[in-house]
């Protein structure tokens, strides 16, 4: 295999560059940067959330990064007066569909592992400035397996922040999809974080190729 790329690359690169025109060259890294956000309808999201009075889907947007990443944001209702939007983010990483795509990949749109203690602290401070934040000791479980979350509170409000990475190719993910990253941020009036987590617990991915659930849903 080692020798194959050594020679193959010659033609792959040449072919790819040849298609770029004859009147001089410009750098082609624009394809690797995230495209600007585009608004989409809620129906076009690859996820369905359980009906919710408190957290309806208010708006949806989508953007792609290179040919392998698609990111979606569902902006959810926010009954509080706190700063920041309530939202569910879904990042879908597909496998490149060409050898050239495999050679030229954009930087990951999410790191793996998703968070270190340091980056998590930063993210929570950004999401919930001036609130008391606590990372839950144990994770929870939804249709797609275990996830982790943190709870932020002040005198009047409670917020939750949950994150999850789906990479199980054996059962859950279709062949074309390398990984799905979910991130959920919601502030609400309830003091009980479980109530705030209900939409995340009940969400269902609706990608073109089916994503299966984690399998042992007896616990839910």
């Amino acid at each position: 295999m080692s020798g194959v790329p050594r020679l193959l690359r010659l033609s792959v690169l040449a072919a790819a560059l040849l298609t770029a025109g004859c009147a001089g060259w410009v750098r082609d890294n624009s394809t690797q940067l995230p495209k600007p956000w585009q608004r989409i309808t809620a129906d076009a999201l690859p996820v369905t959330l359980p009906e919710s009075q408190q957290f309806p889907v208010l708006a949806a947007r989508m953007r792609s990064t290179g040919t392998v990443y698609k990111s979606y944001i569902a902006v959810l209702g926010n009954p509080t007066v706190l700063e920041g939007e309530n939202r569910l983010t879904v990042d879908v990483q597909t496998l490149p569909d060409s050898l050239f795509g495999a050679l030229v990949q954009p930087a990951r749109v999410f790191p793996v592992p998703l968070y270190t203690m340091e980056t998590l602290t930063k993210a929570l401070n950004r999401e919930f400035p001036e609130m008391e934040v606590k990372v839950a000791d144990g994770g929870r479980r939804n249709r797609y397996g275990d996830y982790d979350y943190a709870v932020a509170q002040d005198e009047a409000n409670t917020c939750v922040f949950a994150w999850q990475l789906i990479t199980d190719h054996a059962r859950m993910l279709p062949e074309r999809i390398e990984a799905v990253r979910l991130e959920y941020r919601v502030c609400g009036a309830s003091r009980n974080p479980r109530v705030l987590l209900q939409p995340f617990d009940g969400l269902m991915l609706t990608l073109p190729e089916g994503v299966l659930d984690a399998g042992d849903m007896g616990v839910l």
Partner: peptide, 14 residues
């Protein structure tokens, strides 16, 4: 150049 075609990237050479 490693080959006649395809090794100019912008104003750099591969």
């Amino acid at each position: 150049l490693p080959g006649r075609d395809g090794f100019r990237k912008g104003d750099s050479l591969v």
